[in-house]
Simulated assay, not measured.
Amino acid sequence: MLDVHQAVVSVQRAWAAGNQPGATLEAAGEAFAKTVGYRLYTVTQMLSGGLEVERIYTTNADVYSVGGRKPILPNAYTQRICGEMKPFLARTPAEFAPLFPDHETIVSLGLGSVMNLPVLFNGAVLGTVNLLDREGAYDERHVEQAMLIAQQIVPVLLARACKE
Rank of each mutant, 00 (worst) to 15 (best):
L51C: 01
Y57K: 06
I56T: 04
R13C: 07
L47I: 03
L51D: 08
R55T: 13
T35Q: 02
A27Y: 09
V36K: 09
G49Y: 02
G37Y: 00
Q12T: 09
T58S: 12
L47T: 08
V11Q: 00
G67D: 09
R39I: 00
V63Q: 15
I56Y: 04
T35R: 04
P74G: 08
R69W: 06
G67Y: 12
A23I: 09
N60L: 09
L47R: 13
G29I: 01
V36C: 06
E54V: 11
P71T: 14
A31V: 00
D62N: 15
M46D: 14
R69Q: 13
A14P: 10
I81C: 01
V53A: 06
A28I: 00
G68R: 11
V11W: 00
Q45I: 07
K34H: 04
L40F: 06
Q20L: 07
R13N: 03
E52Y: 03
A28E: 14
D62K: 15
G22R: 10
G50C: 07
N60F: 13
V36L: 14
K70V: 08
T42M: 15
L47Y: 01
P21G: 04
G22M: 03
L51K: 09
S48N: 03
R13H: 14
E54P: 05
A33S: 10
S10Q: 00
V66T: 11
V53M: 11
L73Q: 12
L47D: 06
A14T: 02
L25R: 03
Q12D: 03
S10G: 13
T59P: 05
R55G: 05
A28T: 04
A17P: 02
A16Q: 09
E54R: 15
